[in-house]
Computed example of a mutant assay.
Amino acid sequence: MEQASVTIADVARLAGVSKVTVSKTLNNSGRISQETRERVLKAAKDLGYTVNYAARSLRGGRTNLLGMVVPELISPYFTDVARAAAEAASRVGLDVGVFTTSRDQKREQERIGMLQSGLADGLLIVVPSDSASFLVSLEKSKIPVVLINHFGAKTHLPTVCADNYHGARAAVEHLLSLGHERIGFVTGAKESTQAQERLRAFKDTLGARGLLDPTLIAEGNFTQRRGFEAGQDLLNHALPPTAIFAASDATAFGVIDAIKDRGLRIPDDISVVGFDDVLAASQIHPTLTTVSHPIEDMNSTAVRLICEMLDGESHKDTLIEFPSSLVVRESTGPRKA
């Protein structure tokens, strides 16, 4: 039977159940025995049946799909965020569709508009553009919206985030405790409110000690390539830093490449700290000291909020912030005499 002509009635006929039972099984709702569920799913698979989400939405039904909008997937951090969201959604019978914006605000709005048109039941927006007017428009969305790691303009939208400021302060204070006074910093993407928080913490912590040198702040964009270039710039400084704090682990990997390219040793000659604690941070050599974000907890909470909003609960002005923690590994050590 051709896929285009397969209906719920066909699946029900082959499985020997009612159309209601097929619908409940495919929607993962109601009390269906495991044996019946398996029979229905096998019939659907054998017939090549696929759910028409657009038609379901037009009928006022749920698609069981959550849309996640992220700046990009090149960064291992956003890859980990998408994975954690998919796992959290799967545990409650939902799927996640991930859409990237390439850090372009217009593209972000287009992706969100498409998902709001009936493709998804709810929206998870990771590090949204810091536009007050755009956030106001999202507050009027017909489907639930949860922001992840938003630190910019005020909004009534529920927000789940992990502390960036105090995590970054802990990283700088760790380097200070090791005797480092000339500390370089590679920033994140300009438009990222997370990056702005990390830079603010860096400036505040060193400024309070009278050790802030603006010439040791190099522009980055969360990528490894730019981390390598920024690392070279800092090493070319007339008085180079004895430690470098990068706004992301990917950036830190690039900084490490630049240091090794100069024939310098980590941490004997220079220390390096990252931010995010992606999987590779514990696997490279030397292992990377970094700030860990509770990605699984954040995404589980964001999915829970979406589900509760779908059930009619209000989460207006809800803000849930998780603490970050410094993970000390091999890439930091005492300042070289």
Rank of each mutant, 00 (worst) to 15 (best):
V145R: 03
V146W: 01
D130Q: 13
S137F: 07
A153N: 15
I143A: 04
T155I: 06
F134T: 05
I125K: 06
L135P: 07
L135G: 06
T155V: 06
I125G: 07
I143M: 04
I143T: 03
S133G: 12
L135D: 04
L138D: 00
S129A: 15
L147R: 12
D130K: 10
V136E: 15
S141R: 00
V146T: 05
K140M: 08
V146N: 01
K154I: 09
L123P: 03
I148D: 00
L147M: 11
L135H: 08
S131F: 04
H150V: 02
V136K: 15
H150D: 05
I143F: 02
A132C: 09
H150K: 09
N149Q: 14
P128C: 09
K154L: 14
L147V: 09
V126E: 01
D130A: 13
L147T: 10
S131K: 11
L124V: 02
A153P: 14
L135W: 05
A132I: 07
H150R: 08
I148N: 01
V145E: 05
H150Y: 10
E139I: 00
L123C: 05
T155A: 05
D130R: 13
D130M: 12
K140C: 03
F151A: 12
P144C: 09
V126H: 01
I125A: 06
F151L: 14
L135S: 06
P128T: 02
E139K: 01
K154N: 14
S133V: 11
S141T: 01
A153Y: 12
H150P: 08
V136F: 10
L135Q: 10
K142I: 07
A153M: 12
S141L: 00
D130F: 13
I125C: 06
T155E: 04
L123S: 04
T155Q: 04
V126S: 00
